[in-house]
């Protein structure tokens, strides 16, 4: 009997220890030389179903946007779908960032083999530590709060989709609907209790219900205004003081616009060109748009090569000569 009591006592005693962090995995980050990212060390094998939440602790001399990537046993490559955008705040001490990844991204699943953090601006002055934990109400609240304020910057896909603010992976709209419905039910009930007449209760409740809905609408709009202010700031930083040419370069991937300008100077105006590129961007459409009346023609006398040496080799074998080189991997061939 005493033994049973002792075991029970020990079990109860162990529970808080369990909650206090026995069930967590520490991940340290290193910054490989000449790379723009931090990678988790050592390579781990975290069960995504169990360890749903990552707590990042980041000390940063400069804040800015960043992205957390991960690799899983189902998809061992780091890629956009398995990532999460967030914003790093400037701080002298380690600041905590909680993310319930299981709720925020459906690809946090299976075994997580590696995590990577890619700060958009600089890796200098950054120190990162992380812990994978089971979620609890506190971390969920922290994670939801942070997710709510994540900046959804305008992207090419924004023309079709705006996800809008989310909390723990669920659209904020849903929370507002619940809030409005519960409030309306409460208002109607209290009006009914007062008047004992459904028609009167509906009439009295309608006004309050609509006011609540409009208030929630405006509250969500305040959050949207925040993103629009951030968009203005971002565009101001990107475009202010730049010439039209520099702006076009800024909205085109890598140095592609500069390469096109180079090609524009080298190819006779109005002639046709073929274009060799990796199919990861709107290279062809941009070339036609910026170079017109010089235009894409698969059988054209000129071939613009943009980081596609493998494809260019066939043309060189077929007798094409290099007309001009912009830089390594970016050049023009002529028949």
């Amino acid at each position: 009997m005493e033994r049973k009591l002792l075991f029970t006592f020990l079990f109860v005693l162990l529970l808080p220890f369990y909650a206090c962090g026995w069930n967590q995995i520490n991940i340290s980050f290193s910054h490989p030389a000449n790379t723009p990212y931090f990678i988790g060390q050592p390579e781990c094998n975290i069960d995504g179903e169990e360890f749903t939440t990552i707590i990042l602790r980041i000390k940063a001399e400069r804040g800015g946007p960043a992205r957390l990537f991960w690799a899983t046993n189902f998809d061992p490559k780091m890629n956009e779908p398995k990532s999460l955008s967030f914003s790093i705040d400037s701080s002298n001490d380690f600041k905590e960032y909680a993310f319930n990844l299981r709720r925020q991204n459906p690809y946090w699943t299976g075994f997580i083999g590696q995590v990577l953090i890619f700060p958009d601006e600089t890796t200098e002055g950054l120190e990162i530590k992380a812990t994978a934990i089971h979620d609890d109400i506190i971390t969920n609240l922290k994670s939801g709060w942070r997710e709510f304020f994540v900046f959804e910057a305008p992207q090419l896909r924004s023309v079709n989709f705006i996800y809008g603010p989310k909390v723990n992976g669920v659209s904020m709209n849903l929370y507002l609907y619940y809030l409005a419905i519960i409030s309306a039910a409460f208002i109607l009930l209290s009006a009914f209790i007062k008047s004992q007449n459904i028609a009167v209760a509906l009439k009295l409740g309608a006004k309050k219900t609509i006011i609540i809905c409009l208030f929630l609408w405006l509250a969500l709009d305040a959050r949207i205004l925040l993103d629009q202010a951030r968009t203005v700031r971002l565009d101001f930083q990107t475009f202010y003081g730049k010439s039209l040419e520099e702006k076009r370069a800024a909205i085109t991937l890598g140095d592609y616009y500069d390469f096109l300008k180079f090609a524009d100077a080298k190819i006779p105006r109005g002639s046709g060109f073929n274009l060799l590129f990796l199919p990861q961007y709107y290279y062809l459409e941009k070339a036609n748009y910026y170079l017109y009346p010089t235009h894409y023609d698969k059988k054209g006398d000129y071939v613009l090569v943009y980081n596609a040496d493998d494809q260019a080799a066939d043309y060189i074998k077929a007798g094409y000569k290099i007309l001009a080189v912009y830089k390594k991997g970016e050049y023009i061939l002529k028949k």
Partner: peptide, 11 residues
């Protein structure tokens, strides 16, 4: 349930 229209359709 997206951010396109605020809560206009609900209202």
């Amino acid at each position: 349930f997206y951010g396109h229209w605020n809560i206009a359709w609900f209202v």
